[in-house]
Design a protein around this nucleic acid. Structure first.
Length: 872
RNA sequence: GCCGGAGUGGCGGAACCGGCAGACGCGCCGGACUCAAAAUCCGGUGGGCUUUCACGCCCGUGAGGGUUCGAGUCCCUCCUCCGGCACCA
C-alpha cells in the first residue's frame, strides 16, 4: 500500500473550509457557564502580515482551541486598527485614497490570516475607520466633554514637524516621535485632552489586583508612569501681591524640611515668572533667561553635564513656618507640568537646590541631622537627602523626620497654609491630532457660544472622502468646501467644526467591547453581552504597549463604566490576564560599501558568501528584529507554500517561551517540519495496522510494553494540560508531545500476532497525540483524525482526559546520595515507604561501597525522590 | 544615578515547592538503507580522568562567599548583559 506523503498544501485548505462550513468558531452572543474571551491585539492594516503577527496569533489560537476542546464557549475575534498615519502618507506620496488603500490592505491581510487557519469568529470582525464604529467614539466624546472628562486647554504640547501633528507623551521617546524618530518640539497650542489624571488613583489601585496575572514588568512601568508622590502643598504668601496672586503654592514630598527653605524656584513656564519682574530693573534679565530656557531643547536641559541655572526675580515670599522672607528665583530645572511648577528650595537636603545655592551664594540651612553626626553648611559637598532628626525646626525639634513630615503637614493644614497632598507624574492625555485619517472630533466652535458639542442626533460626524492632499498643507479637512462650515447648534449662527481628529489610540481603547456586539446600533454593546463576556480572560500582544495602549484602554474602560456606557457590575479592569510576547528576530546579512556602511541583503541575494548585487563578500550580521530595512523578513505566503501553516505555527510556539524573543532559524523550522512529517507517518502506520490485538483490554491485562505506552499517554495529557492551562508554556507542552511521539514510534510495530489490546493501545495513543497537538497544528491533526476514522474534527472530539491511576507511576526511580553526592539509583514500586526504600538504597552495590567503613549519622528520605545518607 | 529582569552544553531552551542539571529540538559525530544522493531510521553527543569493556571517579548552571544532609533554585558581595525611569521637588 502506497503511503501518502505529508503535503500541507493538499490538506490545509480542505480543513479550513470544513471549519468554516461547520461554523466551529462562532461564539454565542451570551456565553455559556464555562467561557473564555481570548484576544490578540488587533493589527494596523499595513498590508503585510509579518512573523511577529504570526507568533502573536498562534499563541492566542492555541489557547482558544485548547479552551474550546475543554468545553468552554470561546470568544476569539479579529479586527483592524484602521485609522492612522500610513494611509495618509500613501495619499500624500502616491496619490492614493486613504480609505481604498486601507480597505485594500485589510482584504490582503485577511486572506493572509485565513491562510494560517486561525480560529476566529469572522462574523464579529471590527474595522475602526467606518462610521458604524467611530460614531460611538464620538458619542462618548460628547458625553465626556459634558462630564468634564474631555476638555480643551492651551498648553505646552509635543509637536512633530515631521508628522505635522501633536503627540501624546507616550508617543514621544527621548524627545523624538515614536513613528519616524524625528525630533519633537514643545509648542503652546490649544488641544483636546482626556482627564486621565482623574483616574490616577484608580489606575494605580487596579494594578494591585493584576499582580500575578500581568507581567511584573508591565505593572512596574505603569506604576512608574503614574508616579504617585505623597507629601504636602504649602502656600508661601508673597511680600507684594502680583497679578492678583497673594501666594505661591508648592508641592513637596519633604514638608519636614520646611524650616530649611532659603529660597523659592519657579519654572520658566510659570505664569508669574515674568510678572514679578515686570516694570523693574530686573525685567530685561529675567525675560532673557525665561525666553532662553523655554526655547532650549528639552533633552539638552536634562543632559548629564547640564549646569543648573537660575535668575532672581527681585520678589520675595514668606516662609509660613519661620516668617522669614526668601528670594524667588526662576530655575531651569523646575518643570511646569509637575506639581505646581514652583518648588521650595532646601539646599541642605536637596541636591538641585544645593547646586543652585552654591552657584548664587544663597544660604544653606541644615534642618535634618543624619544618624551618624552633624552637617556643616560651610563644608558640605552635597545635599543630605536621607533620614534623620529634626533640628532648627522650632517646635518640631527632636522628632524623627518621618514623624516631622506628618506633623508639619498637619500643622500647615490647621493654619490654612496647605496640608497633606498627593501628586502624580501622570499627565492628561492629549487626544487631538492635526491629521485627516482619523475619527473627527464632534465639536463645533461658535464665535458667540464658544465650544458646542454636535447634537447626539446629528452623530456621526462622517469623515468626508472627497479631500485633496498636500505635503505640508495642514489638514485637508480645513480645505474641504463644505465640511468646516456648520450652523451652531445653539444659536444657529455660522460656526466652524473642529478640524482635528482623535488619536488612534482612542479607537484601540474600546475595540474589545465592540467585538461583543459588533453590529448593534444602540450603543457600544448590549449589557447582557458585556456582563457575560467581560473581562477579557487572556490578552496577548507586544511589550511595547506596556504604558501606552494598555494604560489608555484601562482608563477608557473605567470611564465608559462611570458614564453608563457599560452596565454596573462590569469589571473595572478590562484585561484579566496579560501575556506580552517577545519579538521575532532573525540574523542579518550585509556587505560593506565604499564608505564602510552596511548594505543589507536578503538571504536569497547571497551566493557562496558573495553578494549577487554588488559582488562583495557577505557578512553575517547581528540577530535583529525582523524588518524591511534589514532585509531579514520571512515572507508568509512563500513560507506557507513550502512548509504549510502548521509548521509556521509550531515553530513560533516551540522555539522559545512566549514572553522571550524568538529567533527565526531555518534549521529550527526544518526540525518542526520533520516532527509533523513524523507524526503523519506514525499515524498512517497505526491506521494501516492489521487488526491483531485490536480490541481494547483493561490496563492490567495489557502487555508491559503497551502499559508503558499507555502510561506515557496519560502522563503526557496531564503535562500538556498543565503547561497550556496554568503556565502558557507552549514550548514545554510541545516537548512533551514530541516525547510521546517518540514513545509511540519506539513501540512494537503493528503485526498480526500482537498481544491482546496492543492495537487498541496504539490507536488510543495516536488518538491522544492528535488531540493534544491540534491546538498547535490543527490542519494536520484533523486530516490524520479523519485517517484514523474519527468523526468530525479534533476540536469537536474534545480534549483528552487522563486517568490519574494510570498516569501514576508503578515504579519510581529513587536517587541515592551519600554525603550529598549521587551514588546510585534504585527502582522501587511507587509509594514505597521509608523503611523499604532505605533498605533497597543500602543494598545498591555502589552505594554500599561508599558506605563501607563509614558511620551514617542521619538518613534523609524524600518520598518518591531520593535518599541521602549523611556520613561521618 | 534609581528601579527591575537575566546570565545553564556548540545553539534555542528544560529543570514548576531546595531533591538525579542539561528534557525537547537544532547542530555535530558514527552507523543502517542506497550504485549514489535525498529522504528516512538507529546509536552517540557538558568537560576531564580511569578502563579491554561494563562500571567507576572528579569537575561543572557568570565570579566569590554563606545557609543546608542537599543549592541552577535561598542569602550576601561582585561582574556582565538587557529593559524601564531619569532634574518629578
Amino acid at each position: 500500500m502506497a503511503e501518502r506523503k505529508y503535503r500541507p498544501g493538499e490538506v490545509e485548505g480542505k480543513w479550513r473550509q470544513v471549519w468554516e462550513d461547520r461554523g466551529l468558531f462562532r461564539a454565542p452572543d451570551v456565553p455559556g457557564p464555562e467561557h473564555c474571551y481570548v484576544l490578540e491585539m488587533f493589527p494596523y492594516p499595513s498590508g503585510r502580515l509579518h512573523m511577529g503577527h504570526v507568533r502573536n496569533y498562534a499563541i492566542g489560537d492555541a489557547v482558544a482551541r485548547f479552551r474550546r476542546m475543554r468545553g468552554a464557549t470561546v470568544l476569539h475575534p479579529m479586527g483592524w486598527d484602521a485609522f492612522g498615519l500610513p494611509a495618509e502618507q500613501a495619499a500624500i506620496e502616491r496619490g492614493l485614497d486613504p480609505a481604498e488603500w486601507t480597505f485594500g490592505n485589510i482584504a490582503q491581510m485577511r486572506s493572509q490570516l485565513r491562510l494560517l487557519g486561525l480560529s476566529y469568529d469572522w462574523t464579529r470582525e471590527v474595522t475602526t475607520c467606518v462610521p458604524e464604529y467611530y460614531r460611538w467614539e464620538q458619542l462618548v466624546f460628547v458625553r465626556m466633554q459634558q462630564a468634564g472628562l474631555a476638555y480643551r486647554r492651551k498648553s505646552l504640547v509635543n509637536w512633530s514637524e515631521a508628522l505635522q501633528t501633536v503627540l501624546a507623551n507616550e508617543q514621544v521617546i527621548d524627545g523624538r516621535d515614536y513613528k519616524l524618530g524625528e525630533p519633537v518640539v514643545q509648542r503652546d497650542l490649544e488641544q483636546w485632552f482626556f482627564r486621565t489624571t482623574a483616574y490616577a488613583e484608580r489606575l494605580l489601585a487596579g494594578l494591585d489586583a493584576l499582580e500575578g496575572k500581568w507581567p511584573e514588568r508591565v505593572l512596574l512601568e505603569q506604576r512608574a508612569r503614574i508616579g504617585k508622590s505623597v507629601g504636602a502643598e504649602i502656600a508661601f504668601p508673597l511680600e507684594k501681591p502680583v497679578a492678583g496672586e497673594k501666594a505661591i503654592v508648592v508641592f513637596t514630598t519633604r514638608p519636614d524640611t520646611l524650616f530649611g527653605v532659603t529660597f523659592m524656584s519657579l519654572a520658566a513656564e510659570h505664569p508669574l515668572a515674568i510678572e514679578f519682574a515686570r516694570g523693574t530693573e530686573r525685567e530685561r534679565e529675567v525675560r532673557a533667561f525665561v525666553e532662553r530656557v523655554r526655547g532650549e531643547d528639552k533633552r539638552r536641559r536634562v543632559a548629564e553635564d547640564h549646569v543648573k541655572e537660575g535668575v532672581f526675580t527681585g520678589a520675595r515670599c514668606v516662609n509660613p513656618a519661620t516668617g522669614e522672607h526668601v528670594p524667588i528665583f526662576i530655575a531651569d530645572f523646575v518643570l511646569m507640568d509637575y506639581g505646581t511648577g514652583a518648588v521650595m528650595a532646601v539646599p541642605a537636603h536637596d541636591q538641585r537646590d544645593f547646586e543652585l545655592a552654591r552657584k548664587y551664594d544663597l544660604p544653606i540651612r541644615v534642618v535634618i541631622r543624619p544618624p551618624d553626626g552633624t552637617l556643616d553648611p560651610a563644608t558640605m559637598e552635597a545635599a543630605y537627602a536621607g533620614e534623620g532628626v529634626q533640628v532648627a525646626s522650632g517646635e518640631f525639634d527632636g522628632l524623627h523626620n518621618t514623624e516631622g513630615m506628618r506633623r508639619i503637614a498637619e500643622w500647615l493644614r490647621t493654619r490654612g497654609r496647605g496640608g497633606p497632598a498627593v501628586s502624580y507624574r501622570l499627565r492628561d492625555w492629549c487626544v487631538s491630532r492635526q491629521r485627516y485619517w482619523g475619527c473627527p472630533i464632534p465639536m463645533i466652535h461658535c464665535p458667540g457660544c464658544g465650544i458646542v458639542p454636535v447634537p447626539e442626533s446629528d452623530l456621526p460626524v462622517v469623515l468626508p472622502r472627497d479631500v485633496a492632499f498636500q505635503a505640508h498643507g495642514g489638514s485637508p479637512l480645513a480645505r474641504h468646501p463644505a465640511f468646516p462650515n456648520v450652523a451652531c447648534p445653539r444659536c444657529r449662527e455660522p460656526a466652524r467644526r473642529d478640524l482635528d481628529t482623535l488619536d488612534t489610540f482612542v479607537e484601540s481603547s474600546w475595540y474589545f467591547l465592540r467585538y461583543l456586539d459588533p453590529a448593534w446600533d444602540g450603543g457600544i454593546a448590549r449589557p447582557d453581552r458585556v456582563l457575560g463576556w467581560m473581562a477579557v480572560d487572556l490578552y496577548i500582544g507586544g511589550i511595547e504597549h506596556a504604558v501606552g495602549h494598555l494604560m489608555y484602554a484601562r482608563f477608557y474602560h473605567m470611564m465608559l463604566k462611570d458614564l453608563g456606557f457599560l452596565p454596573p457590575g462590569t469589571p473595572d479592569e478590562p484585561f484579566e490576564r496579560l501575556l506580552t510576547q517577545g519579538m521575532v528576530t532573525k540574523e542579518t546579512h550585509y556587505t560593506l560599501d565604499d564608505a564602510g556602511n552596511p548594505v543589507w541583503h536578503y538571504p536569497e541575494d547571497v551566493e557562496d558568501g558573495r553578494s549577487r548585487i554588488d559582488g562583495r563578500p557577505v557578512q553575517v550580521g547581528r540577530v535583529e528584529k525582523m524588518s524591511k530595512s534589514r532585509r531579514n523578513v520571512v515572507g508568509l505566503e512563500a513560507f506557507v507554500e513550502r512548509y504549510g501553516a502548521d509548521t509556521a505555527r509550531l515553530f513560533a510556539l516551540f522555539a522559545a517561551p512566549p514572553e522571550k524573543d524568538l529567533e527565526w532559524r531555518d534549521d529550527g523550522v526544518e526540525g518542526c517540519w520533520r516532527f509533523l512529517a513524523r507524526v503523519w507517518r506514525i499515524v498512517h502506520e497505526a491506521a494501516a495496522a492489521p487488526a491483531g490485538g485490536g480490541e481494547p483490554v483493561p490496563f492490567d491485562e495489557l502487555a508491559p510494553e503497551w502499559q508503558a505506552v499507555t502510561r506515557m499517554v496519560h502522563r503526557t495529557i496531564r503535562r500538556v494540560t498543565h503547561d497550556i492551562d496554568a503556565r502558557l508554556h507552549f514550548n514545554t507542552a510541545l516537548a512533551a508531545i514530541m516525547e510521546l511521539t517518540n514513545a509511540i514510534a519506539a513501540a512494537p510495530p503493528p503485526s498480526a500476532s500482537e498481544p491482546p489490546g496492543a492495537g487498541a493501545a496504539r490507536r488510543e495513543a495516536s488518538d491522544a497525540l492528535l488531540r493534544l497537538l491540534s491546538p498547535f497544528a490543527p490542519h494536520l491533526c484533523d486530516e490524520l483524525w479523519e485517517t484514523l476514522g474519527g468523526a468530525g474534527t479534533t476540536l469537536e472530539a474534545g480534549w483528552p482526559r487522563f486517568d490519574p491511576a494510570i498516569a501514576a507511576a508503578e515504579t519510581v526511580t529513587i536517587a541515592v546520595q551519600v554525603g550529598g553526592k549521587l551514588r546510585g539509583q534504585v527502582e522501587l514500586p511507587a509509594g514505597s515507604g521509608e523503611e523499604e526504600t532505605v533498605a533497597a538504597a543500602r543494598a545498591e552495590p555502589n552505594v554500599a561501597r561508599h558506605l563501607e567503613g563509614r558511620r551514617v549519622v542521619r538518613t534523609v528520605f524524600v518520598p518518591g525522590r531520593l535518599v541521602n545518607f549523611v556520613v561521618k
